[in-house]
Amino acid sequence: MDIVVENLSKSFGPQKAIDSISFQVKRGEVLGFLGPNGAGKTTTMKIISCFLFPDAGNVQVGNYSIRKHAAQIRQHIGYLPEHNPLYDEMNVIDFLQFIARIHNIPRYRITARILDMLRLCGLEKEKYKNIRELSKGYKQRVGLAQALIHDPEVVLLDEPTTGLDPNQIVEIREMIRTIGREKTIIFSSHLLTQVEATCNRVLIIHKGKIAADGTSAELRLTYTEKLLRLVVEGGNTEAVFNLLTGIPDVEDVEITEENSFRIQAGRNAPVEKDIFQLCEANGWYIKELVPIEERLEDIFRQVTQSS
């Protein structure tokens, strides 16, 4: 099922949580939802999951609209809320059974589904424990199990990896990638490396608006300047620096160490050629001229600090 979000707006009192955002997620796509705290990620997820009502705009999940078919959408959505609310006094099996029954899973399939979920989420050893007694990581797994038990076509995960240790994070990432092949997944996180490793597409949301949308490779192309590392031999560092700053397309030069420079230039400017010609004219030779890959962190910072 595809998700189509159209001009969605929601305010809490005078504060606009999300301001007319639109995007689409296709089946088989894992969308990473990024943004600083209070950017509107959770609000958007709560609206898609039919918990909050939007002030304006619409969300279409498959052929269903949140305004008209909330009941059907809830049946097809698996949602893990941000703080992972669970009934602490229940034990794991009872809780999953309750959720399975609420989802109208036929009685004969419930046991099989619960066993599948216990296996998938690694809860087999903890299945008889009360949820209250579980550690944060295991609670998070129960949260995931309840979101996936009815085999939903759309999965919304609001910061699913908080409180997990690095091994668990990798496991959950793998799981998201596996289930993401056949389902539509929106997944929010603060950990940018994780989003990059898991998601096909990244959506950065800032102050209630979409600040960037695309695959991480596309974002790099659009939002980053060209960064080069240059190591030159045979010249005085000072002199090379002065001449490098003189190249018209170069925006910034930084001396990182003796004979080594970090050069920033416009994305499409042919600075490599200019640098080469400059070195040739002065009799220096280029030991290294390599592009520096920008990380998603830098793009994130750039996009969310600009306004």
């Binding site: 918990f51 809830r74 809320p81 669970l86 602490d88 989802h103």
Partner: peptide, 12 residues
Amino acid sequence: SGTLELLLTKPV
């Protein structure tokens, strides 16, 4: 505790 959100995002 947030379980209201959990229930109301289920078919309830």
